[in-house]
Design a protein around this nucleic acid. Sequence first.
DNA 1: GGGAAGGCACAACCGCCCGTTGTGCGCCTA
DNA 2: TAGGCGCACAACGGGCGGTTGTGCCTTCCC
Lengths: 308, 308
Amino acid sequence: MDLEAVRTFVAAAEAGRFQDAAAELSVTQQAVSKRVATLEKRLGVRLFTRTARGVRLTVDGQAFLPHARDLLRAEERAVASVRPGRRALRVDVIGRRLAPATLLGDFRRAHPEVELDVVTLFDVDAAVDALRSGTIDASFRAVTMPGRQLPDDIRAVRVYDEPVQLLIGPAHPLAAAHTVTPAELAGHRIWMPGLVPGTEWAAYYDALAAAFGLTIEITGPDFGTEPLLDTIAGSSSLATFVGERTRLVWPADQSLRRIAVGRPTPVYPHSLIWHRENPHPALAALGDHLGSGRLDHSDAGTWTPAWA
Amino acid sequence: MDLEAVRTFVAAAEAGRFQDAAAELSVTQQAVSKRVATLEKRLGVRLFTRTARGVRLTVDGQAFLPHARDLLRAEERAVASVRPGRRALRVDVIGRRLAPATLLGDFRRAHPEVELDVVTLFDVDAAVDALRSGTIDASFRAVTMPGRQLPDDIRAVRVYDEPVQLLIGPAHPLAAAHTVTPAELAGHRIWMPGLVPGTEWAAYYDALAAAFGLTIEITGPDFGTEPLLDTIAGSSSLATFVGERTRLVWPADQSLRRIAVGRPTPVYPHSLIWHRENPHPALAALGDHLGSGRLDHSDAGTWTPAWA
DNA sequence: GGGAAGGCACAACCGCCCGTTGTGCGCCTA
DNA sequence: TAGGCGCACAACGGGCGGTTGTGCCTTCCC
């Protein structure tokens, strides 16, 4: 379907006459007539009844009109999402099912007027580059990697310490446990395919493994979450880590179990970083929203890497 | 913007290679390349980075992708709204700001999975014709007009008795009243432009005027609700009737006042009518929804026309 | 390190769609 | 009944979009 035809249809419906719609669109009346006729042919229904004083919407036309407006609005938003300058707020998250995406979902509900786009970059370096070039406006990252220092023009605020949980199947020996300590996981096989070496995500789990003597396997190609969850659910020895707010979409019959990890609870330090001079008006709203819900991370019962 | 290009963009983003997208769309790789290049040119940004093993989304492309999917979904809904057979549930209402539209809004919220289109036909006769021809699936009307009998194949259920209220400006002598009786309105000027003779809407107010000795003026052309409300707000003698749930969109400074009418309260009997053999699956859900919230209209303190 | 293969871009060609001009027809109005 | 208004149809022309053919770059493998 051609959006130019849809735009013509809306203009004609509002004007009530093809001639006026044609004037508004800077084309001839015949062009409007042709566009509408083509649209009607494609849809298989008549959208207007032609009268001596102009046109009037048919019932089908009345039903189609709001959808046509929706289409044009969606087009406007799509164009606006990539328009240089004054585009929608663009935030980088580490994964679309992880806690940052959930936090952004909360923000979207709290501020429905803010246009928000979510993207995913490779790592902190890419995010910093994108922040500096103005390609993105903010990024959720664990920015305090060992040996790295944020540049002066990048601001960072630690907004959410997310508890790490163990995900296992019903046949796993820990399936009946309510809580396990990190030390109790030593000797168990913890499998995390998809953990890309060099990312801060991988650095976090490296530190976790080192601190408590765990063995984390990242062998094998990453086939996506579904095969991973399938394997975990059917295994009596494999486990994996997930964040407390990680959304899992798995078939209900798999009966995967989340086991809390405590004494201490490893928490993943999500931070929001942005460029000091970014003028985007919605950025302040995002900062306020995240700051208001910020958790107190001075709790002695939690664990973070020494470099965090 | 061309939706075919948008569809191509989504296919290429999912496939990761122009060649695969081309195969899926049954065009050549060069056509996909051209479509994407044209789209990028129109948007002014690069959507893909070209690599030796295919293409990868840029940050702009990542931001654009969900909007592109939205566009295609909106197109699908638009086409579905007029597709003969299996189209969305289509309901005729007497006006988009009156109570039936509000009831449909409630239904939409309660059943977000139901595709619903709202149209407005001229009168009961047009609605019955449309129900029989399958053009619409249901209609909100006050069907019990004097001298009219619904055909056997049309079912009707009285779903909502809407109290009538008086709408006046702050300078009107009744502005301070909490409730007025219909009889007290005799002698006041009640102005209702836009009341089309021959419709059941007009018949109702004719009966109301006759029952209580009121004078209802329908003189003058109907310029829409805004001028009407402006005039009412600034007049010390003009009043008009509105339904209890009628949504008015007027500038806040006009300070219009709604005055309840009681002893008895005139109520407008909204009914839902549909064709006996309409097979639309969502029609039953609409009937259930309206039936569950149906008001008891055996209240002796209300008034309806004798023919209702 | 060099050849082969895979994948995208560019050029040329062409058909078709779209918009314009010119005209006809039906309906309402005076 | 004549005139005007408004949409549809016909003919024409240009440009957009698709295909074929080809070139270039990257990656992989021997």
